[in-house]
């Protein structure tokens, strides 16, 4: 009997907690509000099941708890009831899966004209690279990495020479423009995670992973690492600053290109060779 009361209290407390909880999604700053809607749909369906199951158990305990002389019903199965419940469950599952997959197909198909930015992770910091005027990122490889050249760009690759290198953990993005993030890691797995953007993806050494979004709100947002990457994992901080396009281009112009970071002699030698 106490258990029935406990279950009812749990249900009441859970629902109350849900509505008074100050802990909820951060205000969204990207185009993935459909995703928030899907979560809401899922929450409503699963919440209803949670309440229903617990209340049913509580009711069953109250109604059918042992009393002297009581005897349980003998009822091996009820194909009708069972198939009915299976059908209802299937409908509920489809109601969650369908919008989920619909949003997902958006998430994995970036628009063709999206701005490209590369995120480079290492233990435990972020760097970024923009493709420059030619719109193409140059080749990079661990072979070319050193203390002075953290990005590992191939000095012989012409596409790389105008790449804009952001050697700090602060990334600026223009408001309202789709952007594809290409993710690369020098050492271990990391995960580029901005809670307000909702979307996230691992950085996998040896390959380039990607995801896209459109920033929809100006502001300064924190970048976190969301894939365990060693003892500094909790402290791998960065920032995204979403601003209007003019401010963004102003900022981008202050960042050096790859060619500018090369020592003058090397740069000269390279241009001679070409």
């Amino acid at each position: 009997m106490a258990l029935a009361i406990a279950l009812i209290l749990i249900v009441v407390a859970s629902v109350l907690f849900h509505f008074v909880s100050p802990w909820w999604f951060t205000p969204i700053a990207s185009n993935w509000d459909l995703l928030d809607d899907t979560i809401q749909v899922t929450l409503v369906i699963t919440g209803a099941v949670f309440v229903a199951v617990n209340l049913f158990i509580a009711w069953a305990i109250i109604r059918y708890r042992h009393r002297p002389g009581q005897r349980a019903a003998y009822e091996p199965e009820s194909p009708k009831l069972e198939s009915g419940l299976t059908a209802v469950t299937t409908v509920g599952i489809v109601a969650m899966l369908a919008p989920g997959l619909y949003v997902y197909s958006d998430m994995i198909n970036a628009p063709k004209d999206a701005l490209i930015v590369e995120v480079l992770g290492q233990q435990w910091q972020w760097r970024f690279r923009f493709p420059g005027a030619d719109g193409r990122l140059g080749v990079s490889d661990t072979r070319f990495m050193s203390g002075e050249r953290p990005f590992g760009l191939d000095p012989d690759d012409p596409y790389g020479r105008d790449d804009v290198l952001v050697d700090s953990p602060e990334l600026h993005l223009p408001l309202g423009k789709p952007v594809t993030l290409l993710l690369r890691s020098r050492d271990v797995l990391h995960n580029f995670y901005v809670p307000q953007f909702r979307a996230k993806m691992d950085l996998v050494p040896g390959t380039v992973s990607r995801f896209w979004l459109t920033p929809t709100r100006t502001g300064r947002f924190e970048i976190l690492c969301a894939e365990l990457c060693g003892i500094g994992h909790y402290n791998m901080r960065g920032y995204v600053i979403v601003e209007d396009e003019a401010a963004f281009h102003g900022w981008l112009a202050t960042q050096p290109s790859f060619a500018q970071t090369l020592p003058a002699t090397t740069a000269a030698a390279l241009s001679l060779r070409r």
């Binding site: 899907t38 969650m96 899966l97």
Partner: peptide, 8 residues
Amino acid sequence: NVSVDIPL
């Protein structure tokens, strides 16, 4: 549910 999983 793949897309719901991503933010969580």
